[in-house]
């Protein structure tokens, strides 16, 4: 099993193109947008529930694009630190979900 974690996950990207304002945030909240993709073996419904629940906890806006037993694809926006925390939570994952590849790239 190869575990790949994009080195961009915890880095700040100065490119204005990956900065966005989440509408539900305050006017001063400059958010980052990331496309987060995971591969592995998932209970698809459980993974979706976990990811969306964790995003809500961390005050991240999430748009789930694709969920299957082997793939999870989503777009998230919010504070970069919280995006990093989201990624770490997904890597640890809920029981029954094993992440073998993880990618978090500026969207």
């Amino acid at each position: 099993m190869v575990l790949y974690v994009s080195t961009t996950l915890f880095q700040h990207h100065g490119d204005a193109g990956n900065e966005c304002r989440a509408s539900e945030k305050g006017p001063d909240s400059l958010a980052q947008c990331h496309r987060i993709r995971m591969e592995g073996r998932f209970d698809a419904a459980g993974m979706r529930r976990f990811a969306e629940g964790r995003a809500a906890l961390l005050d991240l806006a999430i748009d789930t694009l694709d969920v299957s037993p082997t793939r999870f694809d989503s777009r998230l926006s919010g504070d970069e630190i919280l995006l990093g925390m989201f990624g770490m939570a997904c890597l640890l994952g809920p029981s029954g979900c094993v992440v073998t590849r993880f990618e978090s790239l500026p969207a």
């Binding site: 809500a56 961390l58 005050d59 630190i81």
Partner: peptide, 8 residues
Amino acid sequence: ELKVPGTI
């Protein structure tokens, strides 16, 4: 340094 969101 993080301003912790109220959702946590």
